[in-house]
Structure formats: structure tokens, C-alpha cells
Amino acid sequence: DLNRALGKLSERIKRAADAEGETAVVLSPFTAPQRMAANGSPGIRKALEAELKRRDVLVKNGARLEVKGDYGEAEDPAGKAVVRIHGRLIDRDSGRSLAEHSVDVDNLTSIAGLVGATMSVPIEPVPADRERAIREGLSRPSAHVSSSRISAGPKSPFAIEILAGPSGGAIRPRTAEVINGQAYLNIRSSERYAIKLINDAPFEVAATLMIDGLGLFAFSEHPEYSYVIIPARSSGVITGWHRTNDEAEEFVVTEYPRSAAAERSLAPSPDLGVITACFAAAWPAGGNPPLDE
């Protein structure tokens, strides 16, 4: 969904760059409103770079044309919650804006990862009721913390826990606290961390993991993967970025996968990281879904 939206933005950039006789652009970070304390720019940037490349627009640091922009929560014409990404193409020599374009991301998992959402969403039979719950959940986050266990509410069967420790040493659950409805914890720059995904529901779930808007499989040899399965009433620990089914590259605070050479220009924010896990029921194709699905 993010790629589809940024594909449209890329087309607009491609046309404007063609008109200028340029084949390369430099990408600046996409900013979120301060109150969101979000950090989806790395995810936006990686998807945008891929879509530009598909259209023969190179991303190059010295380019004369610069793409920059911002994003935030919005509503589409039908009243559905979306993330609206607004991009601009700037001529760095003259400071002139050559093109601008807004695109909407409407997939709820993508939205949650970009804004760093914490919410329970009821499986309402009435779509309008579910939409209302989503808008409410996005505007009023509801993080619940019990020591190191972080959930979207005291009765929610889904939770995450961050395990952190020195590089090469043991990792232990890290205590979190709630500020303005969102969970926070500290991880030092020298530390590594892992993410425990907890499913206390009586059915298996598909858990989607995003860090700074980048999916767990963003650097994988299997980019077609999108989630991990957590069996009923169990948990799993994700220790790093997925590379292959046998190898993960450990999560460290200061950089994205070192071995992903092509991603050198993608750097984490120096002060804030955002981890988002999304949970949905899962069942074998041909098997039976939970009754409320």
C-alpha cells in the first residue's frame, strides 16, 4: 500500500524531473507533526527510492533536484482514516518548487506503522463503527504498561516486550512507561535489542512488525513476506531484521542492517526510534477462521 501511494508520487516527480532534463534527485527526510512523536521517514524514504528507481530516477546525494515532504493523519473524502504524504520537488539552485503532490495511504497496518499507533480495534460487524473506533484510537493512543509488558489496553490479549542489553551480552526485559498514552523506554546507543511478540488469544495471529516505518522484511531476501505467525497462547522473540529463513541481522539502535550495502544512505534518527507491532487473526487456507471474523 505504501509502495502504491509512493508510486503515484514517483510518477509526478519523474515528469517534473524529465521537464528539467534531470535523471537524479536527492531525498530529504519526510517530517511528521511534532505532537505525533513519529519516525516513519525511513520507511517512506526506502519505498520512495524503490519506486523512483523503477521509473529510472536515481537517488543521488549531489543531485540538483531535491524531494522533501511531510506526512500526517488525515481523512479521505469518504471519512476514512488515512496517512497523507505530501511531497515536493525543489530546484536546489534556485529554491524554486517544481512540483508537489499528495498521496494517501489507507491500509490500517501501514498507517499504524507510520504514525506509531497504539490502539485496540474491535472487530465490529458495522464498518462505520469500526471506522469510528479507528479514528478514536489514532487520536487518543491507549498504551497500557505492566512493568515491561506493553499492550493496547488492560484486557487486550496482545502485547509486546522489548528485551535489551549490551552487544554480545544477555538481553533482559526493559521496563517501559506511558507518556500521553504512548509507551516509552530507553535503549542506549551501544545496546542491541529484541522484540517479544505475545499472543494470549485462543487463536493464532499474524504479527506485522515495523521499525521506523520499515517492515521486518525490508532488508530480506524474501521481500514478499509480510508477517510472522504466533500460535495461540504463546509468544515469539524476533532478534533482528530478517535476511533469510536461517539468518537475521541483530537489531541495534544506531544503524539499519550493516550488510544491506545498498541502504547506506538510510540512517536512523539520532534520538527517537519507533517500534510498531500489528496483530490480526490468522488461519490455514482451507481451515476455519475465528468465529468473529
Binding site: 497504539t118 472487530i123 542506549r188 505467525i229 527517537l272 500489528c278 490468522a282
Partner: peptide, 20 residues
């Protein structure tokens, strides 16, 4: 072995912000 699965609608999103 890979088992094809279907998934339902999002039930919960949980985020944690970490400061360095």
C-alpha cells in the same frame, strides 16, 4: 514447509518509542 494462511482484520496495534 510453507503453509498458506489467510489473515483477518487488524485487532491491535502496539507501539513503543525508544529514546537513545
Amino acid at each position: 514447509a510453507e503453509v498458506e494462511r489467510k489473515t483477518g482484520r487488524l485487532r491491535a496495534a502496539i507501539s513503543v518509542r525508544y529514546t537513545k
